[in-house]
Design a protein around this nucleic acid. Structure first.
Length: 196
DNA sequence: GATGCGATTCAC
DNA sequence: TGAATCGCATCA
């Protein structure tokens, strides 16, 4: 990992399809962010239509966001008044929605991550949606930006061969039955163990 | 204006 | 198990 600051090699069309498929295929990709990088090992999909757990179900502002921005736009929001959560807007002919980045395996910039997180163990740096934004220094200023076009921010395609599991989403009160959480099996950096 | 509620994390 | 503490939506 000698060149962590490398642009995305995913075409914008990667985000112009079904958000569930997009969330699944992001597992194993590498997320680069201003000198830091990590392998994406956990994501969740949220559908703008018919998904009670998606912000679009209860927030007019979220529906507005989907309508006004292109696929690949960052949707960043604060929850519990404590943590920033990072999503990518996905808009395909089969459906629109978001992919929430939930966990990474740190690959570059570990020292900076440790300082931002105030933790030493590698598994404590990015093993949760709030943790990874803190480790990477992501905050609300990123909201609405198309990070894919930045030189020092982006996503690089997966090498392949990553074992992917699906399970119900975490921390939501409705839509629990949908298996829209995707994870790299056996990763030590997951936010929680996969559902049995 | 006031109130309620989170796609969470950490210390107690 | 509960506190932290902010934006958004809803209601008075």
């Amino acid at each position: 990992m000698s060149t962590p600051d490398k642009g995305s090699d995913l075409e914008p069309c990667f985000f112009r399809r079904d958000p569930v498929a997009c969330a699944r295929e992001l597992i194993g990709c590498t997320f680069y962010w201003k000198g830091c990088a990590g392998e994406i090992v956990e994501t969740e999909a949220y559908a703008a239509e018919g998904d009670p757990a998606c912000h679009t179900a209860v927030r007019p502002s979220a529906r507005e966001f989907v309508a006004r921005h292109p696929a690949g736009t960052a949707y960043v929001y604060m929850n519990y008044g404590v943590h920033w959560l990072f999503n990518v807007l996905v808009k395909g002919p089969e459906g629109e929605g978001f992919v929430l980045f939930r966990a990474l395996e740190p690959r570059a910039g570990l020292a900076v991550m440790r300082r931002r997180r105030g933790r030493e163990a590698e598994r404590d740096l990015c093993s949760g949606p709030g943790k990874l934004t803190q480790a990477l220094g992501i905050d609300g200023s990123v909201h609405q930006s198309s990070f894919l076009q930045h030189r020092h921010r982006g996503i690089r395609a997966a090498a392949g061969g990553v074992p992917i599991l699906a399970s119900p989403r975490i921390g939501i009160s409705s839509g629990k039955e949908l298996p829209w959480r995707f994870l790299k099996a056996g990763s030590p950096c997951l936010s929680a163990a996969p559902a049995p």
